[in-house]
Structures are given as structure tokens and as C-alpha cells.
């Protein structure tokens, strides 16, 4: 179980990765910092969440994704993303940043598990092995999830 000094050290050594991922996921600095705060406050309040079954970084990736996903689904973020996608007000100008805007808008329309897969696979560009590690499931199951995701992607492109 994490003690407070260990958590403080974890914040110093891993906080940057949490903030970066939250920023990529949400496209909003203020919200990303709230995710960083929420993740570590949650660990401070319930340190037993980290049981040591995965590496600290993998665990924090998962917490960040879950927290950011919840925010993406919130009404405020939802409205902002839809506005950005449909009103042509895409926040950044680089092709990858535009892809992130599109990805965020797509992610909020997906069921929970597929949304996480979409984030890990398309935004983090993880391998199937890494996906299995972060999701805590078999590679076979990851393969099935990716097939479902691909099918949904095709349907979305067709509409």
C-alpha cells in the first residue's frame, strides 16, 4: 500500500506522465491539471487502490484514462468537443492534434470498454501486448475488442 511519502515521490516521478496523457486526452490544460489532482488525491484517500499487481506507471495510465474518460463524457466537455468538431474550431492546427479532436469526439460515443481501447490503441498507440497489460486481459480478448472497434470505426466513417 502507498504511504504518503511514497505517494509524494510517485507524484514527482510519474506526475508528468499523468499530466501529459490527460492533456492529450482532454485537449484542455486546466482540465488536465484537474485530472492530475484527482488521480493523486484519490490515491491519497484510498492508497489500497494500488495493490502492486502492475507497475506504477501502468496503473497510473489506467487511472488517468478512466478519469479523463469520465470528463470527456461530461456534458461540458461533450459540448466543447462537438462544437470543436462540427464548427470547424479545431483547437490545434497540426494533423495529429486534429486527429485527437476527432478521436475525443468519437470516444465519447463508444461503450466504456471500447472507449478505453480506442484511447490506448489510437492515442497512445500501444501494441496489443501493452493493451492486454493495461486492460488486464488476454491478447485474444484485445484482438476481439480491436475488431469491434474497427467495425464501429467503419460504420462511423460511412455515416
Amino acid at each position: 500500500m502507498l504511504t504518503r511519502p511514497a505517494l509524494e515521490q510517485l507524484y514527482r516521478s510519474h506526475g508528468s506522465a499523468v499530466l501529459r496523457r490527460a492533456r492529450q486526452l482532454l485537449g484542455d490544460e486546466a482540465e488536465a491539471r484537474e485530472v492530475l489532482h484527482d488521480v493523486f488525491i484519490s490515491l491519497l484517500e484510498s492508497p489500497e487502490q494500488f495493490a502492486g499487481r502492475s507497475s506504477p506507471m501502468t496503473f497510473l495510465y489506467r487511472m488517468t484514462t478512466n478519469n479523463a474518460l469520465g470528463r470527456l463524457r461530461s456534458q461540458r466537455s461533450h459540448a466543447r468537443l462537438l462544437a470543436a468538431e462540427y464548427a470547424g474550431q479545431k483547437e490545434p492546427t497540426s494533423p495529429s492534434a486534429e486527429a485527437f479532436v476527432e478521436l475525443r469526439a468519437w470516444v465519447i460515443s463508444l461503450p466504456e470498454e471500447l472507449a478505453r481501447v480506442a484511447i490506448y490503441y489510437h492515442m497512445d498507440e500501444m501494441t496489443q501486448e501493452e493493451l492486454a497489460q493495461v486492460l488486464g486481459c488476454s491478447r485474444q480478448w484485445v484482438g476481439k475488442l480491436l475488431q469491434q472497434l474497427e467495425a464501429r470505426g467503419r460504420r462511423r466513417s460511412a455515416t
Binding site: H14, A17, R20, R21, P56, M57, T58, Y61, M126
Partner: peptide
């Protein structure tokens, strides 16, 4: 390398 791999590496994991 993925960001996860790089992050884990930099964290000594």
C-alpha cells in the same frame, strides 16, 4: 517505442 514504454523506462520500471 510507445510513450508507455518510454515512461516506464524513465521511471526505472
Amino acid at each position: 517505442l510507445s510513450d508507455l514504454q518510454l515512461d516506464c523506462w524513465m521511471a526505472g520500471e
